[in-house]
């Protein structure tokens, strides 16, 4: 491998990682609100929850298209292996997103007969989150590949580990949603959200612990990465920082702080992602295909990279502008509609 063919796939892996992290954080709190919906029966509080993301959800979901599209552009072979291998969870996620996406508009127009769209919003959000966790777990579990094509069965992904990841993501997104509410609403809902966040934080730490212990037990290559010297020392900050983030969230909730719990949770997600990246790099389709095995033609990666370098800052700028325009807490009964 010469220079470009060596570096480009790594750069692209980083670009896609950024898109996925942005998606997970942004659509995470968004889906989390759907997951939390059944925890309040109060109509005004539900309106408040939905209003707090109404202007953003569409932009948030676009990161998923960039993640999927980016994977296809930069690593077509990985895309062509992963999608058929995780066929059913991917389809389930897409259908779930259809329901919860249209629920944003339909629920308002359907009022006062919107009960069904409440269910669509909650069910769709929860299933989408669960399916995303299963996709992640199924990918970590490894995909059977022969001749650079998927060669396994339709239910290979349905392992206890993948299902556990599914539940973990649901709980994690709910925590993002609860801390988002703590930051963005006032009234009784704000207090309730803090209560939810405490319970969810404990659950998230438990799941992170179980997954962190289970992965090295399941996969020897991951055990070697984390527990051989001197790696162990270099990598020790990752779990320690995660504990620190958890502490920030907890103390923030205690002190009624607005931003600390949400950004502490974002930190938790980031560290979780970094942990997974350390465990699996350079594999894109563990345990057989690396970023280099699956990379697109360098000319395609360069052509696309120019676009990303030129446009991503612009996109981030106007996304920030959007969040700034709709800043401030949502009071009960207040909305943009």
């Amino acid at each position: 491998m010469t220079g470009m063919e060596l570096y480009l796939p790594v750069i692209w892996a980083a670009v896609i990682a950024v898109a996925v992290v942005l998606y997970v954080v942004l659509d995470g709190f968004d889906l989390g609100l759907g997951i939390l919906f059944p925890f309040t029966k109060d109509e005004r509080e539900r309106d408040q929850m939905m209003n707090s993301v109404a202007p953003f959800w569409d932009g948030n979901e676009t990161w998923l298209i960039l993640g999927g599209g980016g994977l296809w552009v930069a690593f077509p072979t990985a895309y062509a292996v992963i999608m058929p291998a995780l066929y059913l969870p991917v389809i389930a996620m897409l259908l779930a997103l259809v329901f919860r996406g249209v629920a944003f508009e339909f629920r308002w127009v359907a009022k006062p007969d919107h009960r069904l769209w409440d269910i669509a919003f909650t069910g769709g959000s929860t299933l989408a989150a669960f399916a995303q966790g299963v996709i992640l777990g199924g990918l970590l579990d490894g995909i059977t590949v022969a001749d650079r094509q998927f060669a396994g069965g339709p239910f290979d992904w349905a392992t206890p580990f993948a299902l556990l990841c599914g539940v973990a993501v649901v709980v994690g997104y709910a925590l993002l949603g609860a801390t988002w509410l703590n930051m963005r609403v006032t009234g009784a809902l704000e207090i309730k959200a803090r209560g939810w966040a405490r319970g969810l934080l404990v659950a998230v730490m438990l799941f992170m612990g179980v997954i962190s212990l289970w992965t090295p037990l399941l996969f020897e290559r991951i055990a070697t990465i984390w527990f051989s010297m001197p790696n162990f020392l270099y990598l020790a900050p990752v779990p320690l920082l995660a504990l620190g983030c958890a502490l920030i969230v907890w103390r923030g909730l205690d002190h009624g702080s607005a931003a600390a719990p949400f950004f502490g949770t974002v930190g938790l997600f980031l560290l979780g992602f970094i942990g997974l990246a350390i465990s699996n790099f350079p594999y894109l389709v563990p345990p057989s295909l690396t970023v280099w095995d699956t990379a697109a033609a360098p000319e395609s990666q360069v052509f696309m990279l120019i676009g990303v370098v030129a446009l991503l800052p612009v996109i981030l700028a106007y996304t920030a502008f959007m969040y700034w325009t709709f800043r401030g807490r949502i009071r009960p009964g207040e909305g943009y509609h």
Binding site: A54, D58, E61, W72, V73, T319, F321
Partner: peptide, 20 residues
């Protein structure tokens, strides 16, 4: 692939964000 990805970068984000 790049044509689709350019669609996401130049159009989808623009539409989705300013739609809000």
């Amino acid at each position: 692939g790049p044509l689709i990805a350019y669609e996401v970068l130049t159009a989808f984000f623009l539409e989705a964000s300013f739609l809000g």
